[in-house]
Design a binder for these strands. Sequence first.
DNA 1: TTGGCTAATGACAGCGCTGTCATTGAGTGT
DNA 2: ACACTCAATGACAGCGCTGTCATTAGCCAA
Lengths: 340, 340
Amino acid sequence: MSATIKSVAQYAGVSIKTVSRVINNEGTVKPDTLAKVQQAIDALDYRPNKAARDLAGRDNYVLGYVYDNPNAYYILAMQNGILKECRSNGYELLIHPCDATNPDIIDELVNMVNSARLAGLILSPPLSEMPDVLHAMDEKGIQYVRVLSGDKAPDDKPCVLVDDYQAARQITGHLLDQGHRRIAFIAGEKQHHSTTERQRGFYQALADHGIKADPELVIDGTYSFGTGVQSIQQLLALPEPPTALFACNDEIAAGALFGARMQGVDVPEALAIAGFENSPFSTQTFPPLTTASQPTAQIAQRATSSLIRSLQARKRKAENHTIPADIFVPELIVRESTSR
Amino acid sequence: MSATIKSVAQYAGVSIKTVSRVINNEGTVKPDTLAKVQQAIDALDYRPNKAARDLAGRDNYVLGYVYDNPNAYYILAMQNGILKECRSNGYELLIHPCDATNPDIIDELVNMVNSARLAGLILSPPLSEMPDVLHAMDEKGIQYVRVLSGDKAPDDKPCVLVDDYQAARQITGHLLDQGHRRIAFIAGEKQHHSTTERQRGFYQALADHGIKADPELVIDGTYSFGTGVQSIQQLLALPEPPTALFACNDEIAAGALFGARMQGVDVPEALAIAGFENSPFSTQTFPPLTTASQPTAQIAQRATSSLIRSLQARKRKAENHTIPADIFVPELIVRESTSR
DNA sequence: TTGGCTAATGACAGCGCTGTCATTGAGTGT
DNA sequence: ACACTCAATGACAGCGCTGTCATTAGCCAA
């Protein structure tokens, strides 16, 4: 049988109420008492019983993860990170796939939150970037945390930032360091902020090296293999084709790699290719792709943690309890697709 | 506030325990008492409080989905199907990724079931095919449903079957119908029954046409892009290379397609390629892959439904309540990669 | 020192239900 | 008519936690 609040209290030599205060972060516990309790919790591997909390308290300890994203790897990684944090805080997760282009999406979300009595929502792109959705949530008093592309929080509501701009700058910088001067860029859907941020980083890196981007080398597409194949054909047909390519994600990069090979262009010898995301795709190509890795699960975990802290803060009516936004910069991973 | 068991009892003029008996279908209530209670429930629109039931009872109304499978698309589809069925039955889902090769996997699962007081488990391959795991669950009295590759239930415990054998036979048959006689096969991990079943179907289809399989054309590998690339190189180097390939899944097929193209071999003109699974991979290649589609979400839903029915049956001690196994046969999807 | 205050902690009831066991009452055989 | 079943129902404790309120300890000013 697993540990209960009672056994933790006994172990730590305090009352169950004090343990309750610790697990709810009520903040009115002396540091050394807190340490004792924390230690007891760890020692006994205690996890609050959700049913009991739900029954005794007035809120439900359930969070919702709403997503609309075709990238299964991303979703799963997010989910794992969220789950991990939920578990260690005695929350449960309700998973809700949805269609962001559905005009009734807002009603759908509000209904879901109400009928399942969710404590809060975790939003990832593109939902986290839809002003209408966010506005509706604010209006209904629904708490949420967003995972966002950017380097600065747009407001003081909880969010976790992924600095695509900086990472894209690094990738482009890497290509420039290899001596490339004609570097192409293939963009994904422009609705995703990640796309525009990555593009911004691309331009900035060029500018850093005093290079003017050639508009011919920048192509708009979608986050798909097909975009990569088509775009690279177009690029290679240019009178002066690029010597390097930065694709907005690995899937596009894989498509471009495929397309280049089909045309007899060697990678990386004649064309260096870099992707973004470090998806399983990126190691399954020949040669493997240089890319940028976002620690998605960790991002999700941090986001969930912010949400929970914000929920707890609101519960005890702490004022202005703003949680500083975390920033993650995806890390450059150099593989053979860009080796000299 | 919604009605509680107490208010229903008062309204019906019985004790709360009798109401409890009614809502749990315990069957020891006199018909007219039952009618009275039922009427009270309807009148007050009473819905049992899940948290209270969980806390008081011995099981939670929570199911667990345990998986170890690198295929994110598969997991997500399973998850969605399970979720759908859970919701319509008032159950909740706990998701637990794990590592099937971990020697402590059994302890891990037993611990999880106990500490979360799960009502039952949904097991997909490879976990559903590990005798040790199943045996341990039986021993501990943990209920489960398996998703299995096969066409016959191995025992009378709940399971849902996916007939890979039949589907593989159909795919190979399709290749044969196109006139191919030298057909290669690339296998995935042999621990997965799906691999051996697909291979069995491959051999059977050849036998149906009086063709003896050439051992040179059958290659063992893993369910990966890399396996496809390497294997096709090996196959094309043969003095008498195959004219068609059946790869154990789409990822291998995509790798093989990539590898063939790199060697200047046209698909489907010089080499027909078929995959399996109908994963998003299969439409993102050029040309798109012929494959077999399994309705994973539906399979998951059916599995969950079996589990729930079996749980309820056991609760009211119904004997011999065997639920017949469902069988799904993945459906052949013909695309350009095998067109004549 | 004394009273008055606040921060830290504890005692205890009760959330809505189920499990266990006790009680009732109708039916049975002699 | 008698004890004897057994089906039907009820009384009651308690699941593990939180909310409320009481208590204690620690501190300061007078």
